[in-house]
């Protein structure tokens, strides 16, 4: 396992260095901040803002996955544990240049069973973000803290959208955020189920 996770790290580094178009991080952070503020003004309800951010992220994720697959040329992951490694070491690295720490909730016995059986629903991993490019320069006002705003909730949507396109229905949510005074920023990704491939409808 150690070697493969090292390999993913190398792949992520390589994509970030040679195959990612870079943009100004400050412009990115400020644009995202402006977007969140606009949503807050429009909806005047923090729960609704969280929902909208998640939805936006979902739509981003459904397209981002194609970009990811085309650039990384990775094969299908054998189990959900590997998914966590790839998301953190290749996905986050190649798009945001950060590598969250992955904590797997259920250590899977490494068997050669097919993926659908090797992952009982409920497997999950936690991504701990040491730094968050979206939240650069951000300080949440008292009101937003009380309202329960998850400032970077767009990330949850991206994860859900991207993984759904590769036949995994997941639930992604923030557990804690340094912006709220927590010690770390954590996103939990829980596998709900593997989606079946669609078959054509019989017409005769």
């Amino acid at each position: 396992m150690a070697t493969t996770s090292k390999q993913y790290k190398a792949i992520g580094d390589d994509i970030w260095k040679s195959r990612t178009e870079k943009i100004n991080a400050e412009l990115f952070a400020l644009t995202y901040g402006a977007l969140v503020v606009q949503l807050i003004q429009d909806y005047e309800d923090y729960a609704e803002v969280n929902k909208q951010l998640e939805k936006m992220g979902y739509n981003i994720g459904t397209r981002l996955i194609e970009d990811f697959l085309a650039r990384s040329a990775l094969g299908r992951c054998a189990d959900f544990r590997e998914v966590g490694e790839v998301v953190a070491k290749v996905g986050f690295k190649s798009f945001l240049n950060i590598t969250p720490t992955v904590t797997h909730s259920q250590p899977q016995p490494s068997g050669s069973r097919p993926p659908s059986q090797a992952n009982p629903t409920g497997s999950s991993f936690i991504l701990t973000l040491d730094e968050n490019p979206l939240a650069e320069f951000v300080e949440l006002p008292e009101e937003a803290l009380e309202g329960g705003l998850w400032f970077s909730n767009v990330l949850c949507g991206v994860l859900r959208g991207a993984l759904e396109m590769v036949q995994m229905q997941v639930q992604a949510e923030f557990l804690s955020d340094v912006l709220k005074g927590d010690e770390s920023t954590q996103i939990q990704v829980r596998l709900l189920k593997y989606l079946e491939e669609e078959v054509p409808v019989g017409d005769d």
Partner: peptide, 8 residues
């Protein structure tokens, strides 16, 4: 045939 992981 070339099939992507996303089903295209």
């Amino acid at each position: 045939l070339y099939e992507t992981l996303s089903g295209y």
